[in-house]
Design a protein around this nucleic acid. Sequence first.
DNA 1: ATTACTAGGCAGCGAGTAA
DNA 2: TTTACTCGCTGCCTAGTAA
Lengths: 212, 212
Amino acid sequence: MLDVLKQLALLGGLKGFVSVSSGELAKMLNISQQSASKKILELINNNMIERNFGHKRQLIKITKKGLNLLQKEYADYQRIFEEMKKISLKGVVTSGMGEGKYYLSVRGYREQFKRKLGFNPYNGTLNLKILEPNKIGILKESDGAKIDGFQDGERTFGNGKCFPAKIKNVDCAVIIPERSHYSDIIEVISADYLREKLGISDGDEIEVEVKL
Amino acid sequence: MLDVLKQLALLGGLKGFVSVSSGELAKMLNISQQSASKKILELINNNMIERNFGHKRQLIKITKKGLNLLQKEYADYQRIFEEMKKISLKGVVTSGMGEGKYYLSVRGYREQFKRKLGFNPYNGTLNLKILEPNKIGILKESDGAKIDGFQDGERTFGNGKCFPAKIKNVDCAVIIPERSHYSDIIEVISADYLREKLGISDGDEIEVEVKL
DNA sequence: ATTACTAGGCAGCGAGTAA
DNA sequence: TTTACTCGCTGCCTAGTAA
């Protein structure tokens, strides 16, 4: 029943009346003409479609209720494939050496984070020692929002990328420098002071949901 | 069968093995445990899913083939709802009074078109007298890409918006000024000289597919 | 040509139950 | 507990055919 409705939608039944015979529909769906006819009647009974007869040939249009059903279905598929684009990393809270804080104090980076992530980052990073470090490789290979490097007087600040993420439903972002020696530690930034907001401290194991 | 596969995907079966009993699955799908069990076997036979037994409880993962099927389905729904966001306008080619050409010569507008539409517009507009003028109202109510107004010396140039569109598969865009007296005429811009590229001239009736 | 009825066969469903 | 077999039964599908 849903497959018939979907086929009618593909034929344009959401935009207005479509002229399609039961036989044509049957071929598209690999069922008999009789079955197609019956399914059309079923859809009419369920108020999923509306039908007129335009000189022997039927005209079909999907109703509001039919549209709702299709939207629900579409939403399911969106959820499925959105979820696919996420990766979950488990890690242990660690103390860094203050470099994170330093980088966030540099305007050239801070402004980009603000613009590209949509929040003004707290002046410090949360360091996580990742328990399955191979997963960091997935992040390195994926395109995130690009953070452009720049020159500031004598110092050079390198390129990087960042990925929106969540820890226990709190929005944050994972930063991946473009050039870096191997490390199993990632840096997380957020609008809030995460240690306080999440009530976590060194040694705690937490999970980060990263959106690729 | 597809509904079962979809449910398994919603449970995370695309990311790895999921632990779900046939009874649980049955409840989610409003079928009997026996039917769920049978459908799982069917999916295994069709190489849609893979199964392990983890101490009495089964672990299920969707295979490449299963993923393909879901992607195909998802693509169908995307097509359906993308198509919904289009509107088709029929109109007659008309000669304007050169204003279009003037506006395109103004850098403040031209640069925005270039950036927001992704093409460098030909120096002139195609005027279409729309046969169902009420459809223009739909465009006026929709959000398109915004074109910012500006001051240039003594003149004020107003805000507007534009919508990507196609005429006979040639990319173009429809421009809608923010403030304008009622008119049944729309202006179309394109990278090409449309009259030549499409072989059309005054009085010809054509159709524009506008993407909302 | 169309839509859609009836009839008959077969698939799929769920209850009972084994392992 | 779990999975999954057998077995009736319901209902869906198609063929034939009417309108």
